[in-house]
Simulated scan of single mutants.
Amino acid sequence: MNICIFVGARPNFIKVAPILRAMDAAGVDHSLVYAGREDDPTLEASLFDDLQMSRPDVYLGVDCENLNELTGQVMSAFERYLQDNKTDTVIVVDDLASTMAAAIVTKKQGIRLAHLVAGTRSFDINMPKEINRLVIDGLSDLLFTAGIGGSSAATREGAESSKIYQVGNILMDTLRFNHQRFVRPAVMDELQLTENNYIVFTLNRKALIAQTDELRSLLL
């Protein structure tokens, strides 16, 4: 079996690292395809060193800001890849525009499609990613969900139970694998941070970033 793992952005590598290790251990033929360029500045060497994984086998070379244009470019480039490389299954990750593009092309080529972290929903159709999620899950032959909520969402939308596999949060596999290698960040000493006197949170939604001042006032 030849499996293609498609990733569209830096965070996806954190989720596919455990899958790649499992495939290597099982002797499964696979290729890692990245939507972007080989010289993408966000893919510094330390990313792959930290995850203890190899760099992508194939770079599609897509680089543009407009999501609709990006979707079209990924579809064209990934279609060429599938035509040139025998593939039995494509695994797509998360809910990016590039992920949706790869999913559409995969099904048009008659290839089995698997979606990692399926069933994630905000129930806000105004979010572009929510549209991506609905399209990808609707096309997928295999839906790998992180928990009961994801599985329930997929079921409510008509997915057959035989297609849904509740595999848990794969990020935990990456954390466990690297736990013994964790190093205390230097910034904690620089800022004189001690246990239980700070909060760490991330912002990755435009709506949240626009409300940063309000969030700061709530925290302070």
Rank of each mutant, 00 (worst) to 15 (best):
D24M: 03
A25T: 06
A25V: 00
A25S: 08
A26Q: 13
A26D: 10
V28Q: 03
D29S: 06
D29V: 02
H30N: 09
H30G: 00
H30E: 00
S31P: 00
L32Q: 03
L32D: 01
V33Q: 02
V33F: 04
Y34F: 14
Y34G: 02
Y34Q: 04
A35D: 08
G36H: 04
R37S: 15
D39K: 13
D39P: 09
D39E: 15
D40M: 07
P41R: 12
P41H: 13
P41V: 14
T42H: 10
L43E: 11
E44I: 10
A45E: 15
S46H: 11
S46F: 07
L47A: 06
L47D: 09
F48I: 03
D49R: 07
D49F: 01
D50E: 14
D50Q: 12
D50R: 09
L51K: 02
L51T: 08
L51A: 04
L51H: 07
M53I: 13
M53K: 02
M53S: 01
S54C: 09
S54I: 02
R55G: 11
P56G: 08
P56A: 08
D57T: 11
D57N: 14
D57R: 02
Y59W: 10
L60H: 03
L60M: 08
G61S: 13
V62K: 06
D63Y: 01
C64A: 06
N66V: 12
N68L: 14
N68Y: 10
N68P: 05
N68S: 15
E69A: 12
T71Y: 01
